[in-house]
Design a protein around this nucleic acid. Structure first.
Length: 216
DNA sequence: GACCAGGCACATC
DNA sequence: GATGTGCATGGT
């Protein structure tokens, strides 16, 4: 057990054994994934659930309804997710792209090549690499590894990356040393979030983490 | 009451 | 290019 691939696989196996399947993304449609991806930026998922519940309750969780909705009204509905003024604008920007470029047709979006779709998502103001990649993996089922703060904490504490590694370097670590498998990437990212939430807080030590035996 | 949360854009140096 | 800051609610 010493190649990077071996270590990444070992981490994955330990997390699966400890936590089992995570059933991500918790959403009923690609659009719901997109909305959730924006809403969850630097925010606890519980607030996002509330915000999405509000949209569903008013039957607004589709691209045409959201496009017609005013930014003010949208921000009122997503309030529990925090940063509501900012996120209302970001959601409008994303919906704008979906309706402008694809006439609101998500099936048409699904036809796009992954690299091109990623570029297009990144051009939306408010969609950065993690949000774009979450959409690619969880809404469009592309074999893209999603990097987040927990990915960074776990891999750096385990000596797999430099302290100053950027998003691309982290993504490459996983995508160059693991098979490009949608289902595995789905679980792996979700498991890292789970382990991170429980054991890898900014100041917390690693006691009780299933990965503790692997620490350098 | 402090700390934290499944980022991102923008200002300033 | 690097570093700092605003955005905000809600749970622990």
């Amino acid at each position: 057990m010493n190649t990077v691939s071996d270590r990444l696989n070992e981490i994955y196996e330990l997390l699966v054994k400890a936590y089992g399947p995570q059933h991500w993304w918790p959403a009923e449609s690609p659009l719901e994934v997109m909305v959730g991806a924006v809403l969850t930026q630097n925010t606890n998922w519980q607030g996002v659930e509330q915000a999405i519940a509000n949209l569903k309750r008013d039957n607004l969780l589709n691209q045409h309804k959201l496009k017609a909705l005013s930014t003010e009204e949208l921000s009122r509905l997503i309030k529990p997710a925090g940063y509501f003024n900012l996120k209302a604008r970001r959601l409008k920007n994303l919906i704008e792209m979906v309706t402008e470029a694809y006439g609101g047709d998500l099936a048409a979006m699904e036809q796009m090549e992954t690299a091109q779709l990623r570029q297009e998502l990144l051009l939306v103001n408010g969609v950065g690499p993690e949000t774009a990649d979450s959409i690619l993996l969880y809404a469009f089922h592309r074999p893209i590894f999603v990097v987040d703060t927990y990915t960074y904490r776990v891999t750096s504490r385990h000596g797999l990356i430099e302290e100053e590694a950027n998003y691309q370097a982290l993504q490459d670590l996983f995508m160059e040393h693991l098979p490009l498998d949608v289902d595995m990437f789905n679980e792996y990212h979700a498991l890292l979030v789970r382990a991170g939430k429980l054991h890898c807080k900014r100041k917390a030590r690693c006691e009780g983490c299933p990965l503790e035996p692997l620490l350098p």
